[in-house]
Amino acid sequence: MNKELKIFGVVTFFTLFLYWGVEPFAHSQMHKHVESHGFTYDGTADIKEAEAKLAAAKESGNKVEKAEATAKAKKEFWANVVKISKLKGDPVAGEAGFAMCAGCHMDGAMNMGGVIPPSLNHAGSLYDKNYLIALIKNPAMAGNVDHKYKDTSMHPMGSVSSMITTDQDVANVVAYLKANKAGELTTKEAFTEACERCHAMRYAKTTQLGDTPKFKYKKDELKHQVKILEEQDLVKAYMGKLPPDLSIIIRARSEHFLETFVENPQSQLAGTSMPRVGLSHEGYEKVKEYLTEIGDPSKPAREAIGPWVILFFIIFTGLAFLWKKEKWNGHH
């Protein structure tokens, strides 16, 4: 008996050592470490990135001035955002400003410069306050994708700064969003408003054009498919490639990767054209829940059945032990 336990101990030790080596240890070495910052946005990560690029530029002696200017601009920009976030916004005054937003962000909007402007119905709870301020001040900087618009092109939402001009106006519009556009939202709404202008989700039968309806006639179905393809072509032209379908992204990426990627796509995929989404913690939880519902639908069933199966085998093992004891009786 003692010998059996000793052997069991040896087998267990080597099994766990093996597991540690090929799973936790390997993954810690294979992926770069990215710190999560709890879905708060003050530009720390952006400034760090810009400074790292500056240091690299200085070392190679290439484009030092440009890198210097970028780092400086980022610092000033985010300092200003933090300053505005301390202003007291007036939601009533903000409504007038929001009317400007609603000119594009409306139901049934068409593609404008790359994507369909998303609905802002729950923007107040879906997005972080600092991010919203940053977005209105300078969408490219807020999304940490200013590198895409360096030369001649302009962010499709770039004209917003000529519509909402003063810092107080920005604070007012954000106050309006936080007060009036912050209702409870479903997990699906969270995904639709935050992700769907770029990402389809075929397992939920939804695309950049929203849920795919059922058609009575094949030709209507095909017409709709053509519309989807046309919309996807526009998104592709704007983003460089068609952003991936997110049907099972929840299983294709680790939780930590998804979290830090959504907070700041550049941190995990330097140079990507995906902008920061600016989700609040609450908003991210909703989106993640939806990704789980669609991408890992067996989770509730697993959790419901698991304990019973384990319990069954514990009882099975107990009975088997008694049977073994009886059969081996008188053998030693």
Partner: peptide, 8 residues
Amino acid sequence: SKDIFVMG
């Protein structure tokens, strides 16, 4: 009988 126990 022992096999089945280990299997459990």
